[in-house]
């Protein structure tokens, strides 16, 4: 799975995408968030971290499947 990264998450990871190895047991959005928090402790310090699946905000129990576009959405600050 390849994650799209924006804003501060792009800087934390050091690139605009993050490839997650297929052997990582990430079946839901919630599991992905927990995995990220462990791998990148700086993400735990953010005010919030949402995940978008196919460009829609996703709940933690939403399943992840191959072929989806998955993006990390740190706290937004448009306007």
């Amino acid at each position: 799975m390849e994650l799209l990264l924006f804003g501060i998450t792009r800087e934390i990871v050091g690139g605009s995408t993050l490839t997650v190895a297929p052997e990582e047991p990430l079946q839901t959005v919630g599991q992905l968030k927990a995995w990220l928090a462990q791998k990148y402790p700086a993400m735990q310090k953010l005010s919030s971290l949402a995940v978008a699946v196919d460009s829609e905000y996703a709940d933690d129990d939403q399943p992840l499947r191959s072929g989806q576009e998955v993006a990390l959405i740190p706290p937004v600050s448009g306007g």
Partner: peptide, 14 residues
Amino acid sequence: LIDELKKTVPIWKK
């Protein structure tokens, strides 16, 4: 529209 844009639209400013 401006209040909600600031809450939900995935745009970031540095």
